[in-house]
Design a protein around this nucleic acid. Structure first.
Lengths: 209, 209
DNA sequence: CACCGGAACTGGACCGTACAGTACCCACAC
DNA sequence: GTGTGGGTACTGTACGGTCCAGTTCCGGTG
């Protein structure tokens, strides 16, 4: 028993994470069908056999790394939960939140991940659903809860907080995210993002205050 | 000469369009790397040789059909140019426009096309750019012009019409388009779309009237 | 500390298959 | 016959996945 565990902690576990990291990197870079198991093995400095010892096949490996990256979204979602509720600087605070959200979601890695999932949504429908629910809907729900607090304080006038959360993110993200999706390059300058955040927040407050 | 032309007009041209249609259908259905030239030839009821006689290789064929489908967007864009400007029913008119826009952009074919382009945006960056400019930016510019007319009439209060166009589409489309992107199924009922159109328009007018 | 046994790892050959692209032949029109 | 377009059969290659024979790691035993 003990022997087995310690063995797992050593070499095997190291190889396991090495494979995961390599796979993540290559998949994000070249897409699902663009990457071969040989590529992954090579980048992980591991033999192909070992890859197959840890992951039964390519699809399983892919699913694993995608779902693993989902966890990274937690930080972004936490952002949405913490909004200072001093009525004085509401616009300022919301703008800052908007700006952080923009930074998170236009991060090249995140964009690549979105691309990867969208690209394979028909082959791996479960992954698309899972990611949508765990990332998207959860984020919106969190933001809605935050808005509810603001509404309770009388800072905002909202009857459907979930809808308001949708509108807030739509105002902010529609442009830059679409651009990033279609034009590979993420050609947003910081100034662009500042503008999007300010303008989107202003429009949101005009509609919901 | 004439002989050649008539020959071209007959069999050859028919094959040409048959190939284009078949390719469009299969590419939309199975993605770029998911479709083989054999698939296309078979669906077009044509030999593979003939396919290669008309299109030098797979990439060229793909580019051709994607750019061809871009033209279909013209109808959608024209939508955005014609908005009745009687101040009485502004909200009603805008809501109708919103609803039509939603119908157009949640059309399964359009969604599939988006997916296709996004999925291959890193392999075919030109296609992504072209589509973004010809479809996206053109649509936004058209909508901005329409808003400008409304603003000139004093129906809306807008200082940056392009930004307003972005906000309008973001309010409307962020939710349904994202859902369609990630979850293969387009599970929008008509009632959903009605709601999105009404709510989005209301928020827009609250911000910009 | 030296050694042992077994599990995990390695490298590479290998199989089957799918697929982009090509060579060659046929059928029909002039 | 001569030329053009179409079809069949082929080539080369890349890749997912497996197999095997040898090697390394690591914990346990004397």
């Amino acid at each position: 028993m003990k022997k087995k565990v310690s063995t797992m902690d050593g070499r095997s576990a190291r190889k396991h994470t090495a494979i995961l990291e390599a796979a993540t990197s290559v998949f994000l870079d070249k897409g699902y069908s663009g990457t071969s198991m040989d590529d992954i093995a090579k980048l992980a400095a591991v033999s192909k056999q070992t890859v197959y010892k840890h992951f039964s096949d390519k699809e399983k490996l892919f699913a694993e790394i995608v779902l693993a990256t989902t966890d990274r979204l937690d930080a972004t979602i936490d952002l949405l939960a913490d909004l200072p509720t001093d009525d004085a600087g509401l616009e300022e605070n919301l703008t800052r939140l908007a700006r952080q959200l923009l930074t998170s979601l236009t991060d090249p890695q995140v964009i690549q991940l979105r691309r990867l999932i969208i690209a394979n949504a028909d082959v791996f429908p479960d992954l698309g659903n899972e990611w949508y629910e765990r990332g998207f809907e959860r984020g919106l729900a969190t933001l809605a809860a935050t808005f509810q607090r603001l509404a309770d304080q009388g800072l905002l006038r909202i009857d459907d907080t979930l809808l308001a959360a949708n509108h807030f993110s739509g105002l902010l993200l529609w442009i830059p995210v679409n651009r990033a999706m279609f034009t590979g390059s993420t050609r947003h300058t910081d100034a662009d993002l500042d503008r999007y955040a300010a303008a989107g927040t202003r429009a949101f407050l005009a509609a919901y205050r």
